[in-house]
Design a protein around this nucleic acid. Structure first.
Lengths: 138, 138
DNA sequence: TTATGTGCAAAACATTTGCAGGAGT
DNA sequence: ACTCCTGCAAATGTTTTGCACATAA
């Protein structure tokens, strides 16, 4: 998919962006589709995929390549880290200062031109943790 | 898939493990399939998936949930970080000390019980970097 | 002998794409 | 008018699964 200067602001794009901006849950393409469909019932899933991809390429949104089977999208574009629940798959932000210096270290240790990094913590969210404890009691 | 105490050491499992141990390229399931098929031409792709998954669950190997469309597998199980080429998708190890202390920090900053973290650097490998430069010249 | 594992093929998902008609500029 | 965009459906790519047969213990 290409980025052309004459990218049109269609209703579909406006609403996808609005809906993504409303949540902090890092929804999958399908979840965005469900959110948007409440306002645009005839929108196609392909359109949602195409536009999320396009917006990610143009830097308006972030495509998260975290663990799990689906890609997730984030309207917050300033660099930050994430934590994923190993039980329910939920992804939350971690408000930890970004370690910009480790990119240089990685470059010294590799043959790569290092452009960035991402940290993904994993664990159990409070809900899943509570459930685990109850299960142990039962 | 369940982990049962009576897990059998079949020829297929032995060879999958041997072939994975031979490489440091973090192959995808399909790449493991290709490697193994040279020695066991009648093995099924399903068997490879099943056994890689099983071995990952039992902790014999590592399943890498890095960016890109396919999961990758690693016979090196001690914690380490990775770098992925944004151009060709190759994944290499980064020999950087693991920051075990940031897990505690993440736990303080979240509602999660933090169990681990992974860092994925991204950039351009030397081959892709060279190609880019040549393209600029041409 | 018997539970566990395999090969094969089909199914299940996630994502991408071709195309004819629709809409922004 | 002329692109660019959308909805739809089909295609693609990855992973999982059901089942009859095979095999390790």
């Amino acid at each position: 998919m290409q980025l052309t200067p004459q990218m049109r602001l269609t209703t579909q794009r406006q609403i996808i962006l609005e809906e993504l901006g409303k949540v902090t849950t890092h929804p999958t393409a399908n979840e965005v589709y469900d959110m948007v469909r409440k306002r645009l019932p005839r929108i196609g899933l392909g359109t949602v995929y195409r536009n999320l991809e396009l917006m990610a390429e143009s830097g308006i949104i972030l495509k998260l390549e975290v663990g799990g089977t689906q890609k997730r999208f984030d309207a917050t574009i300033d660099p930050h880290y994430h934590i994923r629940c190993l039980s329910c798959g939920k992804v939350d932000d971690i408000d930890m200062p970004v370690m910009s210096d480790i990119n240089k270290a990685a470059e010294d240790l590799s043959q790569y031109q290092v452009l960035g990094h991402h940290i993904e913590f994993s664990g159990l969210c409070s809900e899943c943790n509570d459930m685990d404890e109850k299960q142990l009691v039962n």
